[in-house]
């Protein structure tokens, strides 16, 4: 399946040539999970990454849907 991914903060530099306006189209086997996407993209400190889709924070074991845009952040905190 093809998934639209958007990277934020320092993660925008993880994928060479990443364009924030366009995001990434990533190909993954059907049934892939949040953790698979992080591994494929080579996100550093994957334990400290957060995926948000359709307003919800995904757990590593959550299945991805090709209908959703997956936003990826490093874990952040409020000041």
């Amino acid at each position: 399946m093809k998934i639209k991914v958007k990277l934020f903060g320092s993660l925008t530099t993880v994928v060479p040539g990443y364009l924030p306006d366009k995001g990434l189209d990533v190909g993954l086997p059907a049934g892939s999970r949040a953790a698979d996407l992080l591994a494929l993209l080579g996100i550093p400190h994957p334990r400290l990454a957060t995926l948000i889709a359709d307003g919800r924070v995904l757990k590593p074991e959550d299945k991805l849907s090709s209908k959703s845009v997956i936003n990826i952040f490093h874990v952040m905190y409020g000041g």
Binding site: F8, G9, S10, P44, H45, L48, T50, I52, G55, R56, V57, N71, F73, H74, V75, M76, Y77, G78, G79
Partner: peptide, 25 residues
């Protein structure tokens, strides 16, 4: 060593959290 305090805040300031909070509705 922490990506938030070591990288994100220095590069984007506290406004770096805006996109995430907005994405969470």
């Amino acid at each position: 060593e922490n990506p938030f305090t070591g990288q994100l805040l220095g590069n984007f300031g506290t406004a770096g959290i805006l996109a995430a909070i907005n994405a969470m509705g």
